[in-house]
Amino acid sequence: MLLEATAVVMEFGSFRAVNGASLTVTEGDIVGLIGPNGAGKSTFFNCVAGDLTPTSGTIRFKGHDVTRATPEQHARLGMARSFQVPVTFEDMSVAENVMVGAFLRHGHRNAARRVADEILAFCGLDTLANARAGSLGTPGRKRLEIARALATEPQLLLLDEALAGLTPAEVRLAIDLVRKIQQRGITIVIVEHIMEVILSLTEHAVVFHQGKVIAEGPPRQVVDDPGVIAAYLGGSMKRVRTQIS
C-alpha cells in the first residue's frame, strides 16, 4: 500500500471540513476524487500532503507515519502535488521553476538543468522554457505546476483540479499527459470535476460529500449510486449526467 489515510478529521474552529475520511492507494493506480463544491477534497489533499496537520486520524506513506510531517518531508519521501489555484514562481522562468523541483534530488545546477529539460520536453513545455512563468495563462501554469512536481521525482502525485478551466482540446492534451505520467510509474490521485476526465482516466473513484467518503468503486458504477446522486442533487449532477452521455 503506497498511501493509507485513515479516519482523517480536519476542523477549522468548530467546522469539520474533513470528517473521518479514509483512502488507500495502491502503487500504479490512478485514483479519482470527486464530490460537490466544498466537499472537503482540497482540505483532505492538504492533510495528505502535510500542508495541514489533521485534527485526528493517521496518514501513512510508503509505510512511514507522515501525519505530522512537514510538506518538505513529504516531498523528500516522494509525494508531490499541484495546487487548485496554481502557485508558480512568477518572476522565474519556466525552466527555473522546474529546476527548483529538480534541486531536491540533484544538488548541482547542471544536473538540475538536465532533469528540468527532460521534464519540460515530457510535458510539452520545452518551447516555453525561457518564458517568465508570470506570462503564462492558466493552462500553462497548470502544466508548469505538474512539471515542477514531476521534477522532484515523486512516486505519488496529487493533482488538485489540474484540468479545471481548460478548453476541451486542452483537456484532451492534459489527459494524455496524465496517462504518460502513469506510464512513468508514478501513482496519481486526481481531484476533478469534469466527469469525462474521471471516466477516461481512472479505474477507481472516491466520492466525497461533507467531509466524508460516501461511495467508491469503478467510476461508472459510482456515478449511478443513489447516495452520490442525492449528494449532487440540485447541484452539479445535471452537469455530471450530460457529461457522461
Partner: peptide, 24 residues
C-alpha cells in the same frame, strides 16, 4: 547560480509552493 539561489527565489515566490517542492 546555485541551489541556494534557486531556493531563495522560490521562497520569495511563495513559501507554500516552495515547501511542496521540498525546499526547507
Amino acid at each position: 547560480r546555485s541551489k541556494m539561489g534557486f531556493y531563495l527565489a522560490a521562497i520569495r515566490g511563495g513559501d507554500r509552493a516552495a515547501r511542496s517542492l521540498g525546499v526547507p
